[in-house]
């Protein structure tokens, strides 16, 4: 009995601990997100939240359903591997609602981005020094953007 009396304060101290741990466990069970641990140590719902973000690039398959003529022309030309939005930029909004006009392209900037001469480009990639090659004339005057090679019947 006296043993307990002389250690009673220790039990009070320990009691605070136990109470705190119990409260913590109770709160914890209530706070952890429901889908946590569904697939692993993370919130399972996060996967679908990230997947639900809006798309900005519609993808060339989408363009091709409406612009079949251009797609066909392009596929037989030298730009076959270049997808529509590589030049036109993200157009998902337009693909959803064609009344939204795509922005006009400045070919002087666009074509040079890919074709300006540089020793760093892989060998065999068609390069020109745009300044001397076109003499300031717009590229489309001679090349059709969707089928640029002159021999391939692209000459205007």
């Amino acid at each position: 009995m006296s043993n307990f009396r002389d250690t009673g304060h220790l039990f009070r101290f320990a009691g605070i601990f136990v109470a705190a741990i119990l409260i913590f466990l109770a709160i914890r069970g209530w706070l952890v997100p429901h889908t946590f641990g569904q697939y692993g140590h993370y919130r399972g719902a996060a996967l679908n939240e990230i997947a639900a973000k809006p798309v900005h690039f519609a993808g060339h398959q989408s363009c091709e359903t409406c612009h079949a003529d251009i797609a066909e022309k392009k596929s037989s030309g030298k730009h076959a591997s270049v997808h529509c939005e590589a030049c036109h930029g993200p157009l998902a909004a337009h693909a959803d609602d064609p009344s939204i006009q795509p922005a006009k392209i400045d070919t002087a900037v666009l074509c040079a981005q890919c074709h300006e001469t540089s020793a760093a480009k892989p060998k065999g990639f068609p390069e020109v020094e745009t300044a001397s090659h076109s003499n300031g004339v717009s590229c489309e005057t001679c090349h059709q953007p969707h089928s640029p090679a002159l021999e391939a019947g692209g000459a205007q």
Binding site: S2, R5, D6, T7, G8, H9, L10, R12, F13, I16
Partner: peptide, 19 residues
């Protein structure tokens, strides 16, 4: 801070010391 216990008998203090 006493947690409601004012037991400072020599024995209690000795136990405290050991703990």
């Amino acid at each position: 801070m006493t947690l409601g216990s004012s037991n400072i008998s020599p024995r209690a203090l000795e136990i405290d010391d050991r703990v």
